[in-house]
Design a binder for these strands. Structure first.
Lengths: 220, 220
DNA sequence: TGATACATACAAACGTGTATGTATGTAAAT
DNA sequence: ATTTACATACATACACGTTTGTATGTATCA
């Protein structure tokens, strides 16, 4: 077979990207070959090289699509006038956790971000970009925490940098470990419980009294 | 040059392993070639193939050494008679965090464990083994939590599985994010503060009152 | 008829594994 | 104490499979 109509060509291009995404998530970017992608898409490498210069260009196109949901998510709660910043933060993290475990597209995004370490050569820029988004998320969390402090919803002496780092690390770890599959935890159902516990940590975990917790009996 | 004395041969073997470990941590296992290792060790691939069958065998030898510190760490607090399990858990996690940021050997271990996803082919067994150690750590945490509940140091209605999952995820995330380098947090100095906050979360984060935290003002 | 949308064929690079060469240590024979 | 014989500890060279990139062929759309 040979030349198709424009729509059919677009279809094969989309097939290539979809197949690539799937394989990237399964085996990682480095270990999926162009033949893998082409075969999975039902074409040959010829088709691939017609639509893309190389694997890096395809991944850039992929990432340009995939980052949209993340960008949207990031924009949700960036309002310094928000009267209930802590509640908004709660909703944001719950939403994030639930999306990751239920929405396959988001699963793919986060799988790629978790394995962003194997981005070499021309893909390093994208890896740096992921790193940047990662950092922006933390900065955003910090701003929300500061806003919450201003509004008396978090203690004034909360170490903001540290707290944001811990929050962010915990979310990352939860997602990564859920992906690793060593969990019998139903994260979709428990997301609220998880985030509530995190917020309690923010509100009561950093005072002077916190240091004595391990030694004393519970007060209930 | 050719045949050396036995001691010199052992030296080159050690050089190969040390060079390999360094490269593995830098570029990942998959992306370091046998030439990389040999060159970094100041020899050729001939020397490599004399001492090791292939990259997998070298990594197995490496891991056999590196897992020792982890095994020791795991054995520390496995005592059901421990009267202060929560305090022991606190010490364990603080120790873990501080070791990771200060001890280069432990850094290498955890770098390898974090990137255990790129273990393919013959190395999958080791990847599975790492996964297993990972799971055992969580099981151990669960047992400590149960012991702490028995001794009235944690609330009886604590969801043990979930709490252990969260603890574990947070530690993983902290280490991974600290490695990622996007942190101005001095984790060695703050380790105590971090773990104290985590324990507050365990003690007070899972009750019915926790769900209302985001909406109410702080009580201080 | 010419540009398009591929498939096919080919060349080059890279990494692995193995076969071979070789100088040296080492133990036994003399 | 030498010499001899062999195992050792590598370096070098080659054969192979795999992946990439490109060049070419070709049917079809427009």
């Amino acid at each position: 077979m040979a030349r198709r109509t424009k729509e059919e060509a677009l279809e094969t291009r989309n097939s290539l990207m979809a197949a690539a995404l799937e394989q990237f998530c399964e085996k990682g970017i480095a270990r999926t070959t162009l033949s893998d992608i082409a075969t999975a898409a039902g074409v040959t490498r010829g088709a691939f090289y017609w639509h893309f210069k190389n694997k890096a260009e395809l991944f850039e196109a992929l990432w340009a699509q995939l980052r949209n949901p993340l960008d949207e998510l990031a924009d949700i709660s960036e309002n310094p006038q928000e009267p209930q910043p802590l509640e908004k933060l709660r909703e944001l993290i719950v939403l994030l956790l639930q999306m990751v475990v239920s929405n396959p597209v988001h699963q793919q995004i986060f799988r790629l971000m978790i394995n962003r370490n194997d981005l070499d050569g021309e893909l390093q820029e994208i890896g740096a970009h992921m790193q940047l988004m990662h950092g922006q998320f933390r900065a955003r969390t910090e701003r929300i925490l500061i806003n919450a402090i201003k509004r008396g919803q978090l203690p004034a002496d909360l170490p903001v940098e540290l707290a944001a780092f811990m929050l962010h690390s915990m979310v990352d770890g939860l997602i990564a470990n859920w992906f690793a599959g060593d969990t019998r935890v139903d994260m979709k159902a428990q997301a609220s419980v998880i985030v509530d516990a995190m917020l309690v940590m923010l509100r009561q975990g950093f005072g002077d009294s916190a240091a004595l917790v391990a030694e004393s009996p519970i007060v209930s």
